[in-house]
Design a protein around this nucleic acid. Structure first.
Lengths: 185, 185
DNA sequence: ATTAAAATTAGACATAATGTTGATTTATGA
DNA sequence: TCATAAATCAACATTATGTCTAATTTTAAT
């Protein structure tokens, strides 16, 4: 077994992550100080600076870790004969649903660029497939179509999360899937 | 004539707006201090606090004023027999094009919620029309469709602005118009 | 159980920005 | 010209930041 990471470090980082997301569900990042966060966490402020540059660095690292989980989910499908993006989408939505609290906190802040980052990572890969679908004559506007559809999907996911995730991940995957295929034709 | 606002106040606010957008084309809002902004503007720091609560307040007021311009453009069409949203869109894009520098600076920051705000304002008005178009059976998902299309459009405008506005406002209006009508069907 | 290494703590420190104040000077509009 | 409003100057207390050292505690591995 073993995480290879010292238990104390693990604890420190966990409590900081946890309480920052708690604060983020009420405040904006710009109004949260290192001082108050550390007091809530009951850790020494110096300890914070041992691990993070500032509050924005902590925020980015939280997003990094979620992004890492996302990439893991995507890579599960990487070596399948037909990489079904609909299955990937469903798995991603399930992951979001299973971590609702974190995503509610992150996505309500305008500082979060989490979902855009996962799209940016997927862009080079999906670019080839899309151009085939869209046809050559639209290649000039490819980037605009890509931006339209992907940011549209992000907005749907955001709306879903922030409105309390009333629909199931399956429903949302099917809805988003329909929106995407409609837009491409 | 007359603006009714004291020339000195006008000058102060103008120089602050101008130099903040200049700074924003390089830095993020969170890294800009009142102190440095006032030094660049060559105004007393106390004068800043005479007009604004903090740097975020100034930023919001800049966005407010642009929003006010947007609403003015929209209202021009308010009392026409058929309120053609395509003409509104074109006029908005022309306005953005005419103020390229400001929009380049604002839209590159993740703190900006400018375009989303203009959409939110238009939402109640357009909701009725949309439901007619979409039909009753989709009313359950209306908000998701609305989020998808509007945020998609915002992403296209952003991409256009940040990539140097290579296409004309007319081209973009027609492209965005096609995207919207395609999505609704 | 012991121990060496690593992490955390307590506390102090200089630095820098913040927001406010009061007295003074300057610019404005009528 | 003149009363008024705005901007300035300079000082001030306050607060968070980031860094540091020495002391203490916890850990992981033997």
């Amino acid at each position: 077994m073993k995480n290879s990471i010292d238990r104390r470090v693990r604890k420190t980082k966990n409590v900081l992550r946890h309480n920052l997301t708690l604060l983020l569900s009420q405040n904006d990042l710009k109004n949260i100080t290192v001082k108050e966060l550390c007091e809530i966490c009951d850790i020494n402020r110096g300890t914070f600076y041992l691990h993070y540059k500032d509050i924005y660095d902590l925020f980015e690292q939280i997003e990094d870790e979620i992004l890492y989980e996302f990439i893991g989910i995507i890579n599960k499908y990487k070596y399948q004969k037909e990489m079904s993006w609909k299955s990937v989408l469903l798995d991603l939505l399930k992951y979001i649903s299973a971590n609702a609290d974190i995503f509610k906190a992150l996505l309500r802040t305008s500082e979060s660029v989490l979902l855009t980052r996962i799209i940016d990572i997927s862009k080079p890969k999906s670019k080839k497939e899309w151009i085939l679908l869209l046809g050559d004559e639209k290649e000039q506007y490819y980037d605009y179509y890509y931006a339209f559809i992907t940011e549209g999907c992000i907005a749907v996911v955001k709306a879903w999360v922030l409105d309390g995730m009333k629909e199931t991940p399956e429903d949302m995957a099917s809805l988003i899937g329909r929106m995407m295929t409609n837009s491409i034709n």
